[in-house]
Design a binder for these strands. Sequence first.
DNA 1: CCTTTTATTGACCGAATCGGTTGATGGAAT
DNA 2: ATTCCATCAACCGATTCGGTCAATAAAAGG
Lengths: 204, 204
Amino acid sequence: MEKFHNLPQEKQDILIDAALEAFGSNGYKKTSISDIAAAAGISKAMVFHYFRTKKDLYFYLFHYCWDLITSEINNQFDNSVTDFFERITLSTEIKVAVIKRHPATLSFLNSVYHENNEEVKDGIKAQMSRTDEFRNKIAMDGMDYSKFKDDVDVGIVMKMLVWMAEGFVNPSKPLQPADLDDICKDFYECMKLLRNNLYKEQYL
Amino acid sequence: MEKFHNLPQEKQDILIDAALEAFGSNGYKKTSISDIAAAAGISKAMVFHYFRTKKDLYFYLFHYCWDLITSEINNQFDNSVTDFFERITLSTEIKVAVIKRHPATLSFLNSVYHENNEEVKDGIKAQMSRTDEFRNKIAMDGMDYSKFKDDVDVGIVMKMLVWMAEGFVNPSKPLQPADLDDICKDFYECMKLLRNNLYKEQYL
DNA sequence: CCTTTTATTGACCGAATCGGTTGATGGAAT
DNA sequence: ATTCCATCAACCGATTCGGTCAATAAAAGG
């Protein structure tokens, strides 16, 4: 795989993006190396030259995305932020940073999570079991719910935000990185609106 | 296709659900009749017996879903409902009714909408151009925005609800019809919470 | 300039799968 | 007993699969 890493970053990214997109939307079995090569504008033989087998490529992408997210969390996450909406905004910023680097990362990882092809299933489980670590790290414990109005059911607010985040990350039309900033602005407006109306006291 | 309609409804539904699910998540080209047959628990030859070709099956499903949604809209939609959240709830109820009948309908239609396979693209466009009719019918014109607090940006609320609806309809984990009622209850709770906090006056 | 190494690919491999057909089988209706 | 029809395993030629390899183009080194 040194072969691949000797490529200029730009060419690496093109191939990675093509592969993430293909695997992410078609799953392991239904994605062919020809698809990926064509989308990346190179020959099929080159893909096998960089990564020995389809399986190798798949798991390379898996670990690559995993590290991408892990490092982004380690860089940005701050558990001293206890305000509910600030925490939500923070984890959204993490997602956005990941998407900006490789737009198909999250849809790929989601597809990996649901993959059940015999050839790769076991290898996924091994790594995937650590998902909960992060879920707990980002999770909402130690959060300050006291600023909410007394009659607001925070559980419902959580569910609402999960839906929004899903629609945000898996839109029916694929995300263009160019649109990301606009969409983000809308999302932050959203957070402001909810905070202003669900908290006891107006925020500045 | 009389062959197919002579089947008991239950067996028709099994095949339709299998086909919607397969086409919806893998697209036209990457979906094989063997996949569908296996998922429906019948032999590949039977599928070709009911529907002469793969293309015929695809467009049968397309028109089937189209009619399903059209009739559900005609049954339930009521443009005399001018309250914002009631209208949202109404269109959600329509979606839920459709999903209860065939869980993969919406994901299938969404996939059809983005399909660009040469063999079926043209046939899709012909019908799909009428999508806007319905979008306008369900749309929010004639809506009463006056009950919102003055400082609430209704455009943002709309965007928020669109995201929620997307996460609601295309969840990362596939929808089980059994869960639907619970999820709906949460969604309606959500609407109540938003209405109570974004309207000038509390609703009963 | 020539040589050696490396990047890149078109053509190819056997195996699998594709959309679609067909002949055989078995059960229900006449 | 016979007709009819639903059902499917086996099969068809064509395509595509994951993967290899020999040949070429390009770059590097002398």
